[in-house]
Amino acid sequence: MPVNLKVFRYDPDKGEKPYFRSYQVEAEPSDRLLDCLNRIRWEQDPTLSFRMSCGHGVCGSDGMRINGICGLPCQKLVSVLGAGEVLVEPLPVFRVIKDLVVDLDPFFERYRSLKPYLITGTPVPEKERGQSPEEHGAFADAVRCILCACCTASCPVNQDKETDGYVGPAALVRAFRYLFDSRDDGSSARIDLLDRKEGAWGCRTLWKCTEVCPKQIPVTKEIGRIKKRMYGAKQEKT
C-alpha cells in the first residue's frame, strides 16, 4: 500500500529555512514507519537525516514527533497510522541540527546532573550487592527507560520558555530509579538536587510524559512518589 509522508526538512549548511517535503513510499501494513523513512533515504532522497539503530524500541535513538505526538517510528506500524498523510517532525524543545536530528546534549546534561548511578557508603563487597525481587520491583518499571527524550520533549513545562530550566521527566525517572533502590545510600544528596523548582517540584502533573512514553513507564506517578519522599524527608527534619 502507498504511504504518504510529510517530512520536516532543514539543512543549516545550505542556509535555507526549514520546510516540509512530501514523499510517497510503498509499504506493507506490517512495516514500521521507520522502514518507510529508511526507504525514502535509500531509494529516493539520501539527504534525509534521522537517527536510528535497533529498530525495535530498545536503543532510544529515533524519538521524533509523529502526527503531532512524540514517539518512536520503530514502534509505529503502517497499519495503525491511518490513511492520511503522516506528519513527521523532529522532537520539540530541542535545537534542530539537521532534518529530524536534534541536539540532545542538554538532555543528557540534565540527566547527568541528577547523579544517574548507584551511590554507596559501604566498601565494595566480594560478590554483587544483593536485592530481593520485591526490592527490585519497587523501581523495575523505571529500569525500562531507554532515554528516548519523548517525555521531556512533550512536557509543557519544558516547552514553556519561562520554565524550560526544569530537568524534565526523563532525568526524574532515573532519579526515582536510584532513590527507591534498596542498595543506594545517596538519598540525601539526591533529595538536595531534586528539592527545587528546576527539580521534581517543576512538574505540574500534566501527564503528557506518561501518555507518550514508549516503554509505558508510569512517569508522572514516579515523579509524584519523589515529591512525597521529599516531603517525608522534610517532616523528619522538623
Binding site: D13, K14, R41, P46, T47, S49, I97, K98, V101
Partner: peptide, 12 residues
Amino acid sequence: AILDKGRTFNYE
C-alpha cells in the same frame, strides 16, 4: 555514487 554532498549528519 554518494549523492548527499553535505557534511552534517551525512548518513549516506
